[in-house]
Design a protein around this nucleic acid. Sequence first.
DNA 1: TAAAAAATCACCCAAAAGGATGACCGTCCG
DNA 2: CGGACGGTCATCCTTTTGGGTGATTTTTTA
Lengths: 156, 156
Amino acid sequence: MRKSHATAVICFFEGMRKTYLLYGLGLGLLLIVLKLIEYQFLVRMHIFEIYGGLIAVLFMGIGVWAGLKFTRKAPAPIIVQAPPVFDENKIKELGISKRELEVLELITQGLSNQEIADKLFVSLNTVKTHSARLFEKLDVNSRTKAINRAKELGIL
Amino acid sequence: MRKSHATAVICFFEGMRKTYLLYGLGLGLLLIVLKLIEYQFLVRMHIFEIYGGLIAVLFMGIGVWAGLKFTRKAPAPIIVQAPPVFDENKIKELGISKRELEVLELITQGLSNQEIADKLFVSLNTVKTHSARLFEKLDVNSRTKAINRAKELGIL
DNA sequence: TAAAAAATCACCCAAAAGGATGACCGTCCG
DNA sequence: CGGACGGTCATCCTTTTGGGTGATTTTTTA
């Protein structure tokens, strides 16, 4: 399913800055050069192997370089410690209800849905619907992501 | 003239371990396939562009993948010294290995096992065994509890 | 160099979590 | 009154996690 390497590669290239367009342009130029070579020498001489080999070597090199370059951990992780501002506005903004907030807090405490259900004296199904709506509002799809999201938003 | 391809492949994979010969073989097969395509369809039809583009994309992808894969292998002892963020004592005390620690961190970042597997270039099963041992060592039974436990211990 | 530890992957199974939908019941408000 | 909203619960189904076991390979270490 989502196991493909392509996924990983795509992920790495997400969120790049404009400057990296230069690299794209570089590649484009490279292609043009290759084009010239192709039509002026290689193709006419029927040595596709060299042409293909060149491209292969070249782009593999580029791939290695680019892959390494863009995945090097950002030396400056910036200040991840976000403002711990307890923000009630965001809660309202996202339309999170009281009960949902309770569930969120218990989730961040590491409780399972069943444990939450026991603690709040409601059924497991109820907790599931609360958490489902919560995830929707927080725009996440798992409790671990919800935990981080809650911290991001300054909730809890 | 498939030698030029082979040369590149050999150069790139020099100094690697035996098992990685498999990758070489894979590339070899790929080349053969390309060869067939070349002679049977593309060249005859004068669409070098597609052929070249294919090779470019393919090998760039391979380059990115290979570059990442094989550089992750190289453990950087330098990095280990850098972040004194971790509480090394407790980590050793609990017998948590390096890889397990990596998994733990990614878990705390809210990633699913599949996402972790993609990021570390290992299989889902491997991530599962890592996390299983991790949970055992942390004395928890879920990832959300592991997150809190990690914070308690001052890990991460 | 031999033994131990770490890392990798696989298969099985059970439990938990997640997604979608529908329903019922209060309360509050226009 | 009649919606709208929040809370409750349910069913069905899929995906993800967690737990257990076994195996191979690589790396570290004694």
